[in-house]
Design a protein around this nucleic acid. Structure first.
Length: 140
DNA sequence: GCCAACGTTGGC
DNA sequence: GCCAACGTTGGC
């Protein structure tokens, strides 16, 4: 099983929005090839951190891939072809304590995270080791 | 609110 | 196919 990190501006779509939904939701709106390719690699059952960018700058919970890659319903076709795709995710568990970007930056073993080095990528892979460290920091 | 980093677009 | 210009993201 693989681990991931999904970024969203809380004012656009927050962790609470996903929790309130209580069902799988399309992770749509991604318009970046690298991010899309990461989503293509996701499998049902993979887990992902939910990260709030801009305002919060912290990991707030864990969600789970509920449906594998499929066309993004909010995207237009390009020359009649599907270009943008997405997966569906559902909330699994909130962190006891949110893990901030500041903490991640100064924590041993997390300094190589994509979040630290390529902050603009909105769908990122997370290593098993990084996953374990951040879960612990989040109180899970 | 600013600006650096990055990705995309479009002219050549 | 290259590269300058532009737009967007996201940390500060």
């Amino acid at each position: 099983m693989a681990y991931w990190l999904l970024k969203s501006e809380p004012e656009t779509f927050s962790w609470q929005d996903l929790v309130d939904k209580g069902a799988p939701e399309e992770w749509n709106g991604v318009r970046n090839y690298q991010a899309r390719n990461n989503m293509r690699a996701m499998q049902v059952g993979d887990e992902a951190f939910f990260y709030h960018s801009v305002k919060d700058k912290c990991v707030v919970g864990i969600c789970r891939v509920a449906a594998a890659i499929h066309p993004d319903s909010t995207a237009d076709l390009k020359n009649g072809k599907v270009v943008w795709e997405c997966v569906d995710v559902e909330a699994v568990k909130p962190f006891q304590t949110a893990v901030s970007l500041d903490e991640i930056k100064v924590t041993e073993g997390l300094q190589e995270m994509v979040l630290v080095n390529n902050s603009r990528l909105s769908v990122q892979p997370v290593s098993d080791a990084e996953w374990a460290i951040i879960c612990k920091m989040g109180g899970l």
